[in-house]
Design a protein around this nucleic acid. Structure first.
Lengths: 191, 191
DNA sequence: CTCATGGTAGACAGATCGGTATACCCATAT
DNA sequence: ATATGGGTATACCGATCTGTCTACCATGAG
């Protein structure tokens, strides 16, 4: 019973469902069944807790996506299965990621308008890490074209799908994005 | 000097740059140079003000986008110029829309997790209206394919570009999305 | 046994929140 | 001449926020 982890996980749940500013410290400690003093012995402020929550979610999300993408043949299948994974996420078939409420990092950036802030930059870093993961699979395609270009396009489709699934409540957004991705990826996965 | 409008515009500026929850009523009236009582004579609560701000931005954005898209030949050029318009927005070349801080409606949904709330639904409605605008131009293509499918794809690219420009600070996101859109749109704009 | 450690429960402090009330000002229309 | 409507400025209310402090409890090591 690691209190620190308990706090992080409970804080994430609340932040993700209701937004960070809308959730108070008292609510977190109450639901985590932890004394307020314990929270402040582990984290020096609410901001420090938020940063820990971002790191936790970053890790969770990347491990999950990496596992899904390496569970099939490398190259085109791996890139396409990413959209199947997103589809599972949007439709709440991934308990690890909690009930879908959009991308936690996009949401957090929306709440913290200032790009100079540590919190904002942690969100950017997460997106960069996801991009790196996708790019590593794009490289397996062994294309002549620029790897960055194709990576950017897939990332853009992914972000578009996430936001559409959230705001428009379009649970089929991942499937739609996948169809576009299929058009972007060359038929011969390995030359 | 319409005080009501003054309040809406100043509130929008602050909400858009800092997030709604992060901005207090006192800050709004101070910067709008309006007495607090005047605010509450025009709006019965902060939520009512937020709703008015959403309606204001909805109108502004749609008029702007509509003008841009009808300023060129209908069909494919109109759909592609949308991405040029987004590019201008992302790079702060559209004073009407204020300095780019992502999509105000996506940001607001991120802060108001509950899809049942009026505020959330106003955001959805805005996105639906933008979709309708895009679809009206897709129809001009006179395609055999399903109009909804192509519309959804263009919307997805648009959302992806907005989020990428915001979180990743990728100011070229619109140009990248445009290249994908060109690939999706048929060469012959009118059969 | 003793005592340090890490925990609980919750009162408290100081600031700020949304919203109301008071007191005053001033232009215009009757 | 005066009454009224819309505005200003600001004190105030109760609630809630982050963060601190006090007092107590349990457990395991020396």
């Amino acid at each position: 019973m690691n209190k620190r982890q308990q706090l992080i996980e409970q804080a994430f749940q609340l932040f993700y469902q209701q937004g960070i500013h809308a959730v108070g410290i008292n609510q977190i400690v109450r639901q985590a069944k932890v004394a307020k003093k314990t929270l402040y012995s582990h984290f020096e402020s609410k901001d420090a807790l938020i940063e820990a929550v971002l790191a936790y979610r970053d890790e969770r999300f990347l491990v999950w996506l990496d596992k899904r993408m390496t569970s099939v043949e490398p190259g085109k299948p791996a890139l396409l299965v990413m959209f199947d994974a997103l589809d599972d996420w949007f439709n709440n078939r991934v308990p690890t990621l909690a009930n879908f409420h959009g991308c936690f990092f996009i949401n957090t950036c929306s709440e913290y308008g200032n790009p100079e802030s540590t919190i904002y930059q942690l969100c950017q870093r997460h997106k960069l890490r996801v991009r790196e993961l996708i790019m590593s699979h794009v490289k397996q395609l062994q294309l002549n074209e620029d790897v960055n270009v194709l990576t950017d396009r897939l990332v853009l489709l992914k972000e578009g799908a996430i936001v559409t699934a959230q705001v428009q409540a379009d649970k089929a957004a991942a499937k739609k994005a996948k169809l576009i991705a299929e058009q972007l990826l060359p038929d011969a996965s390995l030359v």
